[in-house]
Computed example of a mutant assay.
Amino acid sequence: MSYDPPRPSGRLLLTPEDKDAPARVRRLRRLGLGERAEPVFDAFAARLAEVAAAPYSKVTFIGEEQQFFAGLHTPDRGGLAAGGATTEDGDARPVGRRMGREYGFCPHVVVRRKALVLEDVRDYPRFAGNPLVDEIGVRSYLGAPLIDSTGIALGTICVEDVEPRPWGKAGLETIKSMAAELAGQLERREGDPGF
């Protein structure tokens, strides 16, 4: 995979090419995923954050142009994200449910189709310039793909921290195990619209 030429903003386009995006979008629509937040996914993200002792966690579904956080856990203070994301006045910014594919690390996990461990994102040139590093303050990331029985990587689950973090083998095994658990739940969703 190579870097694209610099964008007018001076940043490199670091988002990997995603040839599976059209099939993924069709599958997500069939499962009714990727358009709305659901309490079951927020609860899963909260449990993931607790297990990993991380301030941020997400259940992310990846479309052709954007990511959707169907499950989101942040260290909230009245709906505002604590740490990292701030306005020009220094106030905390809300963390939204949608983000472009050029942000973050989850699009890389989906294209790679395997877990990604970044103990300090600044140690990796490909990721050090990602907007989440500067704008939100993410310093470490651990994510795994949600691959269903059709073989499509629908999205990811991930945890993030604002400090460098040695996730270790235990962290990697945990994120992979929890991704498999959620992928199994998504499979049951197809036969049970009330999931």
Results as ranks from 00 to 15, higher is better:
47 R>N: 09
86 T>R: 15
195 F>R: 01
163 E>F: 11
24 R>G: 06
143 G>L: 01
135 E>M: 08
114 K>N: 10
125 P>G: 06
110 V>N: 10
74 T>I: 13
125 P>H: 06
56 Y>N: 12
23 A>G: 07
84 G>W: 02
23 A>M: 09
41 F>E: 00
122 R>H: 13
53 A>N: 14
112 R>L: 11
114 K>D: 15
165 R>G: 07
183 A>E: 06
6 P>L: 14
3 Y>T: 11
9 S>R: 01
56 Y>V: 15
29 R>D: 11
181 E>L: 14
114 K>E: 15
149 S>C: 11
93 R>Y: 03
18 D>R: 02
142 L>F: 06
166 P>W: 06
123 D>R: 12
165 R>P: 08
150 T>H: 13
51 V>F: 11
179 A>H: 06
118 L>S: 05
67 Q>H: 10
5 P>C: 00
192 D>Y: 10
102 E>C: 06
183 A>F: 08
129 G>P: 03
17 E>P: 03
96 G>D: 10
52 A>I: 02
86 T>K: 14
194 G>H: 12
151 G>I: 12
80 L>I: 10
30 R>P: 00
118 L>G: 01
6 P>V: 12
175 I>S: 01
56 Y>G: 04
175 I>Y: 00
174 T>I: 11
113 R>W: 09
14 L>V: 12
92 A>M: 06
115 A>Q: 13
107 P>R: 06
10 G>Q: 03
7 R>H: 12
128 A>N: 08
154 L>T: 04
153 A>R: 03
136 I>A: 12
58 K>D: 09
3 Y>G: 08
189 R>H: 00
1 M>P: 10
156 T>F: 04
194 G>E: 13
30 R>S: 14
183 A>I: 07
88 E>M: 11
98 R>C: 05
21 A>V: 09
102 E>L: 12
36 R>E: 00
175 I>F: 03
107 P>M: 08
40 V>S: 04
156 T>W: 02
41 F>D: 01
24 R>W: 04
48 L>W: 05
15 T>R: 12
11 R>N: 11
164 P>D: 05
154 L>C: 09
81 A>E: 11
70 A>I: 02
59 V>K: 02
160 E>W: 03
30 R>M: 14
188 R>H: 09
35 E>I: 02
93 R>Q: 15
84 G>M: 02
2 S>Y: 08
195 F>D: 01
152 I>P: 05
54 A>K: 05
140 S>Q: 09
50 E>R: 15
85 A>V: 02
170 A>K: 11
71 G>P: 07
90 G>T: 02
113 R>L: 06
110 V>K: 10
138 V>A: 09
190 E>I: 10
117 V>L: 12
72 L>T: 01
5 P>H: 06
53 A>S: 15
62 I>K: 07
111 V>C: 07
107 P>Q: 07
122 R>Q: 14
32 G>N: 02
104 G>P: 03
139 R>C: 10
22 P>T: 09
121 V>L: 11
164 P>N: 03
20 D>F: 10
32 G>Y: 02
185 Q>C: 09
169 K>W: 09
171 G>E: 01
193 P>W: 04
108 H>F: 07
66 Q>Y: 11
98 R>M: 08
140 S>W: 01
178 M>P: 01
96 G>L: 13
57 S>L: 03
18 D>L: 01
69 F>I: 04
20 D>T: 14
